[in-house]
């Protein structure tokens, strides 16, 4: 059963499991980069983070937390089923885990869409100004979600100040002696601050982190669901049993890790300063 370069099957199993743990350490450090950015900016923009956080749909966040913890439970049972050669149960619980993972991602789509509608997505069209003038185009209920996204996209790529303009005229700019001088940032409308510039200081950093962190987490879930399709295929072929279940076990470790990341993301992104705003 074991591959030629191992002396025993136990050695191979041990090596695979240890290898997975080393991989997870790598994952810890990968997400660690995002968490350290969060730590720094939460420290720096304490109030802006609280105010921005209050715009998140805490009900959906709570729902998703429950869904994801549920998927960890089904995954643990799936691993247990593989260890005991319970073929049908393994398949059933892998499917359940996939379904719960898909549910989580579906809810995430709803949340993201709402952020697009409210112009709370970082970029030229960003506008977050809870105390000041309301952002144009927000809370017009007759406008449909796809239109809003379309408008957002148009706004971003059509008239972005500074950066995109420099990119468009890139060839021209490189002929200048100093690249920095050539691409100096310019305001959108001279003499008048844009809605983006008038936004609450630090709020765009919060939303940038929100999308980077939840986006990276969601990417891991998408990869996980992809891997589960593969595991499911081999499970239906009867590959996994009490003798050989390492792939299922290692995938379980990955899935639980993704769950743990969310266990931290939920309070750090959704629940800060909730008590100040009272109830949602």
């Amino acid at each position: 059963m074991h591959k030629h370069h191992f002396d025993t099957f136990d050695q191979q199993k041990d090596a695979s499991s240890f290898g997975m743990w080393v991989f997870l350490v790598q994952e810890i450090m990968f997400f660690g980069g995002l968490f350290v950015a969060y730590l720094v900016y939460r420290h720096q923009y304490y109030m802006a983070f609280g105010t921005s956080s209050a715009t998140l749909r805490v009900d959906l966040g709570l729902f998703n937390t429950i869904v994801l913890i549920g998927s960890s439970l089904t995954m643990a049972i799936a691993v247990n089923a593989a260890q005991r050669s319970l073929q049908k149960r393994l398949i059933a619980f892998l499917l359940a885990t996939m379904a719960l993972g898909a549910t989580f991602l579906g809810v995430k789509v709803i949340e993201y869409t709402e952020k697009f509608e409210k112009r709370e997505v970082p970029g030229a069209n960003f506008c977050f100004n809870p105390q000041g003038a309301p952002c144009k185009g927000v809370s017009h209920e007759e406008e449909k979600t796809p239109d809003l996204i379309q408008r957002y996209l148009n706004g971003r790529f059509g008239k972005l100040p500074g950066l995109d303009k420099a990119a468009e005229h890139g060839a021209e700019a490189t002929t200048h002696a100093e690249a920095g001088e050539a691409a100096a940032p310019e305001p959108g409308v001279p003499g008048e601050a844009t809605e983006r510039q008038r936004s609450m200081p630090g709020s765009e950093v919060y939303f940038s982190l929100y999308f980077a962190m939840t986006g990276m987490h969601a990417l891991h879930m998408i990869v996980g669901i992809g891997l589960m399709v593969w595991l499911l295929y081999w499970a239906t072929k009867g590959l996994y049993s009490a003798e050989y279940y390492t792939p299922i076990e290692n995938f379980g470790l990955y899935w639980h890790f993704v769950d743990i990341v969310w266990i931290f993301l939920f309070p750090l992104l959704y629940l800060i300063n909730r008590h100040i705003g009272g109830h949602h």
Partner: peptide
């Protein structure tokens, strides 16, 4: 434009 390090956005 997810600006985590951009000083113009407070990064």
């Amino acid at each position: 434009h997810i600006g985590i390090f951009d000083p113009a956005l407070g990064g």
